[in-house]
């Protein structure tokens, strides 16, 4: 049974007008920013379906950009974000698409620059979001847990090598791979925090290509 809180109902404090199309957009942006984990120089936002169709009226475009810039859902700067100085520091554009294989409120963040990366996510209602894909790996990041994300070579023993170092309780674990022995991803949701030393240790493992520690969203 899912655990719920009254704070799911009487919050968040957010700028309007829509929890899915505005607050959800900001939270998707924040998560994508955390996943990318490098200064954003150039980005394309690709909005799908309802996000593409009604996004402008809901400030979805503003929300996505604000999230990428690190603003929280209740930041009143979101409304005029396009005119703000912080927005002028990056090169961004929006694309609008229809694709009914995608969620009604889906978005791709296409990062360019020194590090290219594509992060995809959906706004699934009431401000809740899920990051579904990072490049071609399926993931399931909701922003509710501190999460360790690994990209590595699919070799036997990797899961136990990593998880035995983690001292806090693991809430969930999801793996995906291109093919046997090929690139693989591991998404570990945690009930607590891990320190930088652990992340460095795992980063130095043979066959580990990338490690990200993605902190949970504050609101």
């Amino acid at each position: 049974m899912r655990q719920s809180s009254i704070m799911d109902i009487i919050s968040p404090i957010m700028v309007g007008p829509s929890s899915s199309h505005t607050a959800g957009a900001v939270r998707l942006g924040l998560m994508a920013r955390n996943v990318y984990n490098a200064p954003v120089k150039k980005i394309t936002f690709r909005l799908y379906n309802s996000y593409a169709l009604t996004g402008k009226g809901h400030g979805t475009d503003k929300g996505l950009l604000a999230g990428i810039l690190g603003l929280s859902v209740d930041d009143t700067r979101i409304k005029n974000i396009f005119d703000s100085d912080i927005a002028k520091q990056i090169d961004y554009k929006f694309e609008y698409k229809e694709d009914f294989n995608r969620h009604p409120n889906a978005v791709d963040f296409i990062f360019d620059g020194n590090l290219s990366m594509q992060v995809s996510g959906d706004s699934i209602g009431a401000g809740e979001i899920v990051i579904t894909k990072i490049d071609n790996f399926s993931v399931n990041l909701t922003g509710k847990y501190n999460t360790l994300l690994l990209v590595y070579k699919d070799v036997p023993g990797m899961i136990s090598r990593v998880t035995k170092l983690i001292g806090v309780n693991i809430a969930s674990l999801q793996c995906d791979r291109y093919a046997k022995g090929d690139d693989a991803s591991m998404c570990i949701c945690l009930d607590g925090e891990v320190d930088k030393a652990l992340i460095d240790t795992i980063s130095n493992f043979d066959d580990v290509y990338m490690v990200r520690y993605i902190k949970k969203l504050e609101n």
């Binding site: 009487i10 404090i13 700028v15 309007g16 829509s18 929890s19 009143t76 409304k79």
Partner: peptide, 12 residues
């Protein structure tokens, strides 16, 4: 008008 509110339970 994109002011600050409390979603309770939703923004609408």
């Amino acid at each position: 008008r994109m002011g600050k509110i409390v979603a309770c339970p939703t923004a609408g």
